[in-house]
Design a binder for these strands. Sequence first.
DNA 1: TCATTTGAGTGAACGCCGTTAACTATCGCA
DNA 2: TGCGATAGTTAACGGCGTTCACTCAAATGA
Lengths: 240, 240
Amino acid sequence: MTAPTRRERLRTATLAEIKAGARRLLVTGGIDAVSLRAIARDMGMTAPAIYRYFPSLEALVAALAADLFDELRLGLEAARDAAGGEPVDQLLAMCRAFRAWSVAHPAEFGLIFGAPTPGLATFVDDCVDPDHPGARLGAVFLAPMIDLWHRSPFPTPPVELIRERLGDRLEPLRLSHGDIPIEVTYTFLAGWTRLYGLIAAEVFQQLTWAVTEPEALFELELGALAGQLGGVDRPDGTAR
Amino acid sequence: MTAPTRRERLRTATLAEIKAGARRLLVTGGIDAVSLRAIARDMGMTAPAIYRYFPSLEALVAALAADLFDELRLGLEAARDAAGGEPVDQLLAMCRAFRAWSVAHPAEFGLIFGAPTPGLATFVDDCVDPDHPGARLGAVFLAPMIDLWHRSPFPTPPVELIRERLGDRLEPLRLSHGDIPIEVTYTFLAGWTRLYGLIAAEVFQQLTWAVTEPEALFELELGALAGQLGGVDRPDGTAR
DNA sequence: TCATTTGAGTGAACGCCGTTAACTATCGCA
DNA sequence: TGCGATAGTTAACGGCGTTCACTCAAATGA
């Protein structure tokens, strides 16, 4: 592990500046505003120079997406670590942190959780890879849920039903995370899609016709989720 | 209501052909492949001619989105009408039809349920309009749920809690659909975001790292939803 | 019937875009 | 000191949305 040469330092700095410019354009003008020429212009460069750093615009966007996944995951881990040792508290803190990041960064959320660009499909296609960003993010939620299950099992549908319906179809998850109690797997997937639906609906403005301040709905649903995980005994299902 | 003139007939035909071409490009190449020049090329025309029909590409895409909303809504209504008179059966049939359409038309789903294009925001911004496509679609689910509530109320969180958390924030929904029992409102919103999350996660390929055949998960969750609506008394929560 | 107005479509142009190719200058190292 | 690798340039190609001036056929009205 030798020290980086001067060239390497300059290179990584330029690389970071390119991605920063791409993100700035993404935030201010949407994904369509992210163009090599605009990035280069902002840097006082010309567009073809960027090809020394990325083989194509698509690859640049994929790299940006990977960075965003990491940023989000680190944020969730920080929220988890600040939530104390109770798995339910950790899960709730992570759900709230997930929503907060998403609402604060709608363009970034759209890039990594929205409709996959036909060209960006390569980024999502290697789903068997355990280092797939989605899998790494899922793991952050999965671990406390497994922890909780071992401390105090939460109610689920009958295991035979889950196994019959889902059993054969969990190969990707098994490949990336090993064997997990199938009740936990089901609860995780159900919770994940629910969380995803709440956040995506809000960020993608699919609730504007119905409700202002979707956070209120989010908190209500979080209470219901927490109730199902048995973490709270208040009769009204309120989250702590 | 006089008969359309020859000119009008030709105009509507050309208009439909433009939108059909746009949709074909959307399906085969994603939203980025929808270009005035490509549409015109397929029609044996030149791009500026399309400006006789739409003021901009963005307006064309917005019109296409409105058509897709209608197509989906009509499909859901057909599924409802084919499901018999039981509200729970109607709701389940509509949920399945929603998923089937979305999985069969991922590009179209992405257009109307994905991240709003900054330019397309005008399309979603007039959320107060009761004829907003989202509101019209929501109504299709809302009606059977109200019906069900009046026939046999389903369990919900305490009404005081819902009212406290959600009460003031339902103005948009009230404007488009009038007063609705707040328990129904909550159950509808919770169910809508859950359904949306399941379908969007599948269509946007956010589950590939975890599960093959997301339909199995969808059916499991549908069973849980039906169970919560009290429509099924089977102990395993299976949908009919 | 004939002149006129309207509407649909064309072609050229402008400024964006991604990408490639040929070229230049500088940095780091032997 | 010289040389190869590296980072940048300019020019060009084709594609894009959009505008403008123009043509030509169809509808309209006296």
